[in-house]
Amino acid sequence: MMTLLVRDLKLSVRAGGGALIGVLFFMTVVAVIPFGVGPDLNLLSRIGPAIVWIGALLSALLGLDRLFQTEREDGSLDLILMQEHPLVLTVLVKCLAHWIANCLPLVIASPLLGLFMNMSEVAIGAVALTLLVGSPALTFIGAVGAAVAVALPRGGLLVSILVLPLAIPVLIFGVSASYAAVEDPAPFMPPFLILSAITLFFAVLGPLGAALALRNGGD
């Protein structure tokens, strides 16, 4: 299983890998927001956490469709499906590799974008923390969508459409925990704990669903 993790990480940083593009997309999306709403720093700092979260959500979806599609295109998926390793575990490892390569850079880049949004230090920390905890859930949910759409020619768009509605709870609790960290009356812990729970829940359900979809999607 470690070999699979190492291989996927290698592939993501080799030429043509998507690791850099995800972060770039994230930065670009967040950077164009001020052009839309105007350079009002107070307004930006108020909407900042939400913007950063939505940007991260969109860029996390960006590379997801390739999660199983590349494997299918060169036939590796067949060999993976035939193995005695539990398929759920294989999917989990692939999700993990995808998260490390594509979502962890987003988490690392988020404080920088927080500065651009004129957010306070506490808010920046809160957003980075909630992204760190919440983004694995996005990958796990996305894995189901990627597995369902694996054989489809224009799967990329479809994956986003399938996954976005499912990702709404993650967004809700991620953003509300970030706001709770800045605004006094609301407590930070409850939404944060719910967010962690969602991630753990999808860490089980996501690979299960994806494995099921891959088994049934054979052709």
Binding site: R7, K10, L11, R14, A15, G16, G17, E73, D74, G75, S76, D78, L79
Partner: peptide
């Protein structure tokens, strides 16, 4: 199968 199951990048 018809496809080689090898990664061209590696």
């Amino acid at each position: 199968g018809h496809r080689n199951a090898m990664k061209p990048e590696m």
